[in-house]
Amino acid sequence: MTFEEIYSSIKKQEYAPIYFLMGEESFYIDKITDYILENALPEAERDFNQSIFYGKDADIANIIDTARRFPMMASRQLVVVKEAQHLKNIELLDSYIKNPLQSTILVINYKYKSLDKRKAFTKNIAQLGILFESKKIYENQLPDWITKYTNGLKLKIDTKASILLSEFLGNDLNKISNELDKLSINIPQGNTITADDIEKNIGISKDFNNFELQNALGKKDVLKANQIINYFSTNEKKHPIYVTIALLHSYFSKILKFHFLKNKTNDNSVASALGINPFFVKDYKSAAKLYHPKKLVSIINLLREYDLKSKGIGNVSSKNGDLLKELIFKTLH
């Protein structure tokens, strides 16, 4: 089942006897678990009918014994196992999985990794309960995810604001959702979150960031690029060079890839091939006109060289701010 399907069913109080929630992205695992904890049992019933275990300290036999216990003066009980990835011999739960108690809701949080789907244990969970894999979201999917989440808060968000958030916070959905939740307190429903709102409330500069540096380089805007890297050099902790280099490596690699695409006319096809939002295809097309493949290969090699220098390899005394200035100069000239 998808997250949306699971969330819809538990909102209707339609609970399965087993929820095995696994995968690299903790956001959806926490979301499902928190909702079940808050809604499966009335508050008055929780003292006697709600049990929470933690993988590092829990014992499989104790979990099974608790799950097989009948609820006390209630229609069901809730058993939650957090950090189940630390449980020893988790497959010993199979004896319970094969014959679950229908009056128990067993929720197992197995974060940052997944079970082997070929094993009988995993197949039994999928057959007799809910097996959900929460996969890490790709960076190019973040702006759309942010837009969707913002819509759920009855707000809108413009493209630049969503790009700023995704660039600054990466693909950590918990951090992004927390920031958007805070913004929703200060911005009236129905309004649009702008880059100005992001700068004012979260502290991300709308003019001096890696996204704007990428744009400046894509247009060979020497003045703007230098303004940004000068700002970065005075705020090295806030703008670490390794993050800038990684993003620029990805950017210039995509421009190089664009040169060798068979279909360059269809924006959706280009966006899919490059792993970007269709909104930005025009920018990549413009950049490709200014950077021929040979120059792009040279830039990618430069980025690798300066990544090593920033880590002290082949560099004794240069500060990261100076390295970045050198790198951008060589990229533009």
Rank of each mutant, 00 (worst) to 15 (best):
T104N: 06
V79M: 08
L223P: 00
D196H: 09
Q141T: 07
I198P: 02
N230V: 02
D94E: 15
S272P: 01
R69Q: 14
A61H: 11
D172P: 00
E212W: 00
L296W: 02
I63S: 05
T66K: 10
Y251G: 07
N178W: 01
F132N: 01
A67P: 02
V281S: 03
L169G: 06
N215V: 09
K182M: 12
I90T: 06
D221N: 15
Q127N: 13
S95E: 14
V297W: 04
K175H: 05
N89S: 14
L93Q: 00
L164R: 04
A74G: 10
P100R: 03
Y306H: 07
V222S: 09
D221L: 08
E91M: 03
Y7D: 12
K311W: 05
K88Y: 05
N315A: 01
Y96W: 06
I36F: 02
K175R: 15
S310P: 10
E179V: 05
I146V: 15
Y15G: 02
S9Q: 13
A61L: 12
S272N: 13
I157Q: 09
N174H: 06
D267N: 14
Q141L: 10
T147E: 15
S269I: 15
R68E: 11
F260W: 12
Q141M: 11
L180I: 13
I97N: 04
L169F: 15
I157D: 11
T2V: 07
D30N: 15
I163F: 10
V79W: 04
K31T: 15
G152Y: 05
Q127M: 06
L223M: 11
E236Y: 02
L169C: 11
L308D: 12
F232S: 02
A246W: 00
I105P: 05
L164E: 05
N171I: 07
S253P: 02
A40P: 11
S103V: 00
D221M: 04
G275S: 12
K200P: 02
S184P: 08
D181C: 04
L327Q: 00
E199H: 06
Q85A: 14
A271W: 06
K113P: 01
T33K: 00
L173T: 03
G218M: 04
D172K: 14
K330R: 14
N62P: 00
Y138M: 09
L169K: 04
I18Y: 02
V107T: 04
E212F: 04
S8C: 06
F121V: 08
I202R: 05
N315C: 01
H86S: 13
Y231E: 08
Y251I: 09
N215Q: 14
A195V: 01
F252N: 00
V270D: 07
L290P: 09
I163Q: 05
K82H: 07
I125T: 03
L101Q: 13
A161M: 07
S166G: 14
S134G: 11
D116P: 02
Q102N: 14
R304G: 10
K200E: 12
Y54W: 12
I90S: 10
A195G: 08
I63T: 01
S177I: 00
K294V: 14
F168Q: 12
F27G: 05
L37Q: 14
L165H: 09
S269Y: 10
K289V: 08
D47K: 08
S177T: 13
H249D: 04
N191L: 07
Y96N: 03
K88C: 03
L78H: 00
S205Q: 07
A273I: 08
V243Q: 12
K262Q: 13
Q227P: 08
